[in-house]
Design a protein around this nucleic acid. Structure first.
Length: 289
DNA sequence: GGTAGCAGAATTTCATTAGT
DNA sequence: ACTAATGAAATTCTGCTACC
């Protein structure tokens, strides 16, 4: 599971408020986690393969699929399919369903690879050689393909999780930093935010109070290009302030139609970002310094 | 006038996180 | 275990420009 610590969140917020792209931070975290997984996986493969004289894929199945020491998430990945996909296909992600489907998928993959081996692959061979502490093993074509497939499956999972997580965890720290830099009084920010464990929790809405006493709902989305319907949700929830990394022309027009103030971060200096944010605060009659 | 190529917008798909 | 929410990537659609 990919999670970002507070230091990474702080770095990301800093980058966003400088109008810089934050994505390199996420990408390097994805790479680091993936490479670590690959290294661990390779070490486990060496161990499993050494203990076995099996010529078929049985050693893999026994160690990585039919092994109750491994989490169901990883068993699915070793079998070449993500748990979420199983959930979508079967409508359930109970342990039994996941394990059954993983086995099934592994059999199907093995069969497919065998067919490829006989036909299209004629002439081509792939051999992965792994060594660790002087012990080395060689994986056959079909073993190599199974391993490559598992790595690819894991990469998808890590990526999806990382992007999902960064957006959630940055919302409140980013809003707080903006308010702090503009000198919005603490009592005008909804106090729920400061409760323990809610700083990185997006389920609690971030709201800022106008002088009239009205609470304005704020929304942050680190959206990039081409994802218009995700912006729709913002307006449907009657947000008054919409802050995003990148906004399309249509996003902006739509925000204005819904009477929602927008603030774009990317490619703007901190000065411009703060100036624009203060303009929004004035418009909504929210006090600031 | 016709079209190949490209950039950007809109649409669809997919896996994760976190609250309940 | 389930559900709502979140963003990237892939794909499709659209409009513009350069070139013949």
């Amino acid at each position: 599971m990919v999670t970002f610590d507070e230091i990474i969140i702080k770095q990301t917020v800093d980058k966003l408020l400088k109008g810089e792209d934050y994505r390199s931070i996420v990408v390097s975290k994805i790479n680091a986690d993936f490479l670590q997984f690959a290294i661990d996986f390779f070490k486990d493969i060496i161990k499993a393969k050494c203990d076995s004289t099996d010529i078929s894929l049985n050693w893999y199945k026994q160690n990585f699929i039919n092994n109750d020491l491994i989490s169901t998430d990883n068993i699915a990945i070793y079998a070449g399919i993500n748990k979420k996909t199983i959930h979508n296909i079967k409508g359930s992600a109970t342990k039994e369903v996941v394990l059954d489907f993983a086995s099934e998928n592994f059999e199907y993959l093995s069969l497919m690879i065998k067919e490829l081996e006989d036909e299209a692959f004629s002439g081509l061979d792939v051999v992965i050689k792994l060594s660790y502490n002087g012990v080395s093993v060689e994986l056959s074509l079909s073993e190599s393909l199974i391993v490559i497939n598992a790595l690819a499956t894991k990469k998808i999972a890590i990526r999806g999780g990382a992007w999902s997580s960064i957006g959630k965890k940055c919302e409140k720290p980013l809003m707080l930093k903006l308010c702090e830099l503009c000198g919005v009084p603490m009592e005008n920010i909804n106090s729920d935010i400061f409760k323990k464990n809610t700083l990185f929790d997006r389920e609690v809405d971030f709201k800022i109070k106008s002088n009239s006493g009205v609470w304005n709902r704020c929304e942050v989305k680190l959206m990039g290009k081409g994802n218009p319907e995700s912006a729709d949700a913002i307006f449907a929830r009657e947000s008054k302030i919409f802050i995003a990394d990148t906004l399309s022309k249509m996003n902006k027009e739509q925000a204005e139609q819904w009477n929602c103030e927008w603030l774009e971060l990317k490619n703007n200096s901190t000065d411009v970002i703060l100036k624009n944010f203060k303009k929004i605060l004035s418009k909504l009659d929210i006090p600031y310094k």
